[in-house]
Deep mutational scan, measured.
Amino acid sequence: MSHKQIYYSDKYDDEEFEYRHVMLPKDIAKLVPKTHLMSESEWRNLGVQQSQGWVHYMIHEPEPHILLFRRPLPKKPKK
């Protein structure tokens, strides 16, 4: 599979999560399941490479070739 064609967005966040999206080329996108969110082993098997802790959290129906990921931000110590 062509890992060079996978595009990784910059990371962005809110108060709770860090987010990123990953755009897959058409040949890989056709392998994305339409019935469920992928486990880490499933998206890694497609060639997506990112650190541990990312969760495929949403399917964007109009653009199924874009995978939406998030992971919890580290808890800030209370002052």
Rank of each mutant, 00 (worst) to 15 (best):
K30Q: 08
K30E: 09
V22L: 03
L73W: 06
K79F: 12
S39W: 04
Q5R: 15
V22N: 03
Y12G: 14
D14R: 05
L37A: 03
F17T: 00
A29D: 05
L67S: 02
R70S: 02
V55G: 01
L68D: 04
K75Q: 11
E42L: 05
L67R: 02
K76E: 13
E61Q: 11
E18Q: 14
Y12C: 09
L68G: 04
E42K: 00
L73P: 05
G47Q: 00
W54K: 00
Q49E: 14
S2Y: 15
I6Q: 05
L46G: 01
Y7G: 09
K30N: 09
P72F: 03
F17M: 00
P72Y: 09
H60W: 10
K30C: 09
H3G: 15
D27C: 10
H56C: 06
L31Q: 11
D14H: 03
D13K: 14
W54A: 01
K11V: 14
P64M: 05
K78V: 13
G47M: 01
V32H: 00
P33K: 06
K4A: 03
T35P: 04
S39H: 09
K76I: 14
Q52M: 08
S41F: 13
E61I: 06
K11T: 14
E18L: 03
I66D: 07
Y12N: 03
Q52K: 14
D27G: 08
I66Q: 04
L31A: 08
G53N: 10
H65T: 09
K76R: 13
Q52F: 06
M23I: 15
Q52E: 14
P62L: 13
G53W: 00
R20G: 03
Y12M: 06
K34H: 08
P77S: 13
I66T: 07
L31I: 00
S39N: 10
D14W: 02
M38E: 00
L24G: 05
R70H: 00
E63W: 07
K78A: 12
S51I: 00
Y19H: 08
E16M: 13
Y8N: 05
P72V: 05
M1G: 14
T35M: 08
E63V: 05
L67H: 04
L24H: 01
F69C: 01
Y8L: 01
E61D: 10
F69W: 04
R70V: 02
P77M: 11
E40A: 06
E40S: 07
Q50R: 03
F69R: 03
S41N: 13
V22T: 04
K34I: 06
Q52L: 06
D14K: 00
E18V: 02
P72C: 05
T35Y: 12
G47N: 06
H3C: 08
I28F: 07
E42W: 04
E15K: 01
S51P: 09
R44L: 07
M23S: 12
D27K: 10
F17W: 15
K34W: 04
Q50D: 03
P72L: 08
M1R: 11
H21L: 07
H56N: 07
R71N: 00
V22Q: 01
P72N: 11
K76T: 11
P64V: 03
I59R: 12
D14N: 04
D27Y: 03
E15L: 12
L31G: 07
V32A: 07
V32W: 02
S41D: 13
Q50A: 05
P74N: 11
P64L: 04
M58E: 10
K78C: 12
P74Q: 13
Q52R: 12
G47H: 00
F17I: 06
S39D: 11
P62W: 11
P62K: 15
M38N: 01
Y57T: 01
S41H: 13
K11G: 08
E63Q: 10
I66P: 01
P33L: 02
S39T: 12
D27A: 09
Q5K: 15
K76N: 10
E61H: 08
K79H: 12
W43Y: 00
D10N: 09
K79N: 12
L67I: 07
I59S: 11
E18K: 02
V48G: 01
I6A: 11
S41K: 13
G47V: 01
A29G: 08
T35H: 13
P64C: 05
S41Q: 13
K11H: 09
S51Y: 02
L67P: 05
P77V: 11
E18W: 04
F69S: 00
F17R: 02
L31K: 14
P33I: 04
F17L: 05
H21T: 15
L73T: 06
Q49R: 13
M1L: 09
H60V: 09
Q52W: 03
N45E: 13
D14V: 02
V55N: 07
Y19D: 03
S39G: 07
K4L: 14
L67G: 03
H36L: 03
M1I: 15
E15C: 06
H21S: 15
